[in-house]
Design a protein around this nucleic acid. Structure first.
Length: 271
DNA sequence: CCCGATTCCTGTAGGC
DNA sequence: TGCCTACAGGAATCGG
């Protein structure tokens, strides 16, 4: 379930171990990720220095002078910093070994993650170029959501989870944000009023901000984190709480599949 | 263009 | 105890 807060937490955790370090080698044990790890990537990155570890949406960008590694955790991916000699376990598909005897290790049981390479500006890479604004960017606003949504008949929850609308909001935080904003997840995106989109944009930032802070404390040893809600779930207001009372009005929370995804909401607070 | 359905994969939980 | 099925979730892609 890595959504923006988890990826940002991962970025903060791994950056100090990678930035300024030379890549000694890339070991690929299984190339069969969402897209095959490019043939010859090992040779491309060997000897390069990691200049910066950036994030765009749910993508991590490991920049070097000759190109950028584009890393996505998919649904079940997680990263750990390990000793380069530590024996890999099942599903440990990649090791990026840097100087100093440490390695960045990707574990991804479902293999929906990816590791790609681009020589040019990663912002122009097809997977990155079409992404919507970052939730904490000024371009992401109620007015932006309102304008983009006019005429759209898909559920507002599906609209919010579309990475081309805004990046980083996955299934969990979409439900949480819509609850805070008081918007019913099944409502057509084009039928949500401007003022309510203002509340939604604010709610997204509130929810993601809280989660990033929680990630900093509960997942400070995130390198061992497995990506499941874990401690996070404690502070979720509606996600996975079907049948429990709403914290605001006491009405029982509901679960409903909307656009092929589980949505959790309060039928009284959200219209 | 827009949208719903499908697809990739495997660990886990629940039913029998 | 163990087998079987349903389900979870990110996001590209396909089909209408």
């Amino acid at each position: 379930m890595p959504e923006l807060p988890e990826v940002e937490t991962a970025r903060r955790g791994i950056a100090p171990h990678l930035e300024g370090r030379r890549i000694e080698r890339l070991t690929v044990r299984d190339r069969r990720l969402r897209w095959p790890v490019p043939a010859g990537l090992e040779g491309e990155v060997r000897g390069q220095t990691v200049l910066a570890v950036d994030r765009r949406g749910k993508y991590l960008l490991l920049r070097t002078a000759s190109g950028t590694l584009i890393l996505h955790l998919g649904m079940s991916g997680s990263l750990r910093v390990v000793g380069a000699a530590d024996p890999p376990a099942t599903h440990d598909h990649l090791d990026l070994v840097v100087e100093g005897g440490t390695a960045l290790r990707l574990t991804d049981p479902r293999r929906f993650g990816c590791l790609l390479w681009t020589r040019g500006d990663p912002a122009r890479h097809p997977l990155i170029a079409t992404l919507g604004p970052e939730p904490f960017d000024a371009a992401f606003s109620g007015e932006y959501l309102f304008r983009l949504s006019r005429g759209r008949r898909c559920a507002v929850k599906a609209f919010l989870m579309d990475g081309h609308v805004v990046t980083g909001v996955g299934n969990i935080y979409a439900s949480e944000s819509l609850f805070l904003a008081g918007i019913h997840p099944a409502r057509a995106a084009g039928r949500v009023a401007r003022t309510r989109y203002g509340r939604l944009a604010e709610a997204v930032r509130t929810v993601l901000g809280e989660a990033i802070r929680a990630g900093g404390t509960t997942l400070q040893d995130f390198v061992g984190a497995d990506g499941r809600p874990g401690h996070f779930s404690r502070q979720l207001r509606v996600y996975d709480r079907e049948g429990e009372p709403c914290g605001v009005c006491g009405h029982l929370l509901r679960r409903r599949v909307i656009a092929q995804r589980a949505a959790f909401f309060c039928p009284r607070c959200q219209r």
